[in-house]
Design a protein around this nucleic acid. Sequence first.
DNA 1: TACATTTGACCCCCC
DNA 2: TGGGGGGTCAAATGT
Length: 477
Amino acid sequence: MEIKEAERVIIAKPVASRPSCTKFTSFSELLAGAIDASPHIVSSETAVAAIRPKTVRFKPMVNRAQALLASSQAEFMGTEICSSSIKVSRSESTGTIIHKPQAKLVSKSIVSLLENMGNFTVSQQPTLPSVEASYECPDQDTCNFRSQDISNLHLSVPASAEEDQRAELPRSAAQNQDEDTKTLVAAANGDRPSYDGYNWRKYGQKQVKGSEYPRSYYKCTHPNCPVKKKVERSFDGQIAEIVYKGEHNHAKPLPPKRNSSGTQGLGFADGTGQDENIPTWSSHLNGGSEVLEGGVENQNETAALPSHSTYHGKATLPYDPAGAVSVQAGAGTSDYSCGLSEECDEAAKGFDREDDPPRSKRRKCESQSKDATVAGEGSSKVPRVVVQNSTDSEILGDGFRWRKYGQKVVKGNTYPRSYYRCTSVKCNVRKYVERASDDPKAFITTYEGKHNHDIPLRSTNPAPSSQPPSSRDHPTQ
DNA sequence: TACATTTGACCCCCC
DNA sequence: TGGGGGGTCAAATGT
């Protein structure tokens, strides 16, 4: 296997090269302590990782689960992990690469996320930043999404959060492994349910102009279901976008029986958990009425998405670290703001814990968000969310500061679209927010460009007035 | 063998 | 009207 692996590496088509893991060292360093247990990789190996074939699959579910765990861990760990995971795989000689159960360190939250997501995939996306670890998830979107989220987490989550994670990792990992494993397995079974609860098949991938990363196209695997989604992510995690098209004409697939209890983190992965969760979200997000169609691809999205109608929902997850967070949190929560904010911190912590206390926390978030009336954001901190409901607001919760510079009624839309510009100097990022025609409660945020700066410190952030509506802010996402 | 992913090519829409 | 770009198809490939 090793040889094989090696060959692959060599032979594999050069996937987009990613920045070496080293790029993320800072994060890894943070986690280094935790990771130490895992083998360190040699630079060469790291390089290999970058080259690794895109598709990596695990046959044995268990391994997979473990792998996922490991990978998840890896993601969190950033570079180090990449290598470590790889290394491990090699050491194992089993071939399957990437994922060796090193997972000890994975936090529940992560696991949950994974579960929800169905999997991780990093492998395919060469571009993923920090997280590049090598995962593969059936549902790339999800995975990617997740990874992104995760990466975002890295980036955005406050140190405290990270610390918390670290602290918890060991414990949670151990505790959860079983559970995790089960869940993961469950998730793995069947089609690859994504965290949104539906099964998707990737039918295309394309490099989009202006984007470093490829856009992936997915179709709902349910027969006759017209729903499609496209996923875009940015390596640095700054911009991620998922656009849903169409409406599911079927119920969410029943998940393979999954746990109900603890793991549910997001639970989306399988019907069960998911259903529970989702509805909740949707309910609050959407007013409670329906299940989100978009599901959770990102919770954000989900939230935002009007589940019903053809929405062509577009959920954008722009660099929302928060989004990431929220997603991970599983609650759909928070926006990235969380990352910055205390709440976020909590959310972040929550990650780890969230899963544990998953729902409760989630619900909490949800409730908050609900209160806020916003959808989508889960976690936390809500005020922003509220703001988001109104497109007019200048402040929104994606953590960046935005200035509204225009509003226009776009053809075909009932509601006006508001245009925002990042207030940071030299930052050309813009975004526009509009209400979903079919669901005024849902907002669709579209980002344009990447931020060339970090998210303003929380202190800054929140001024409600300055925050932009983030995707999360909008229910749409 | 079945199924999923990858990826080049083609089609269509919009500027 | 042509070109560019996005979206989809489908063969090849991999698991």
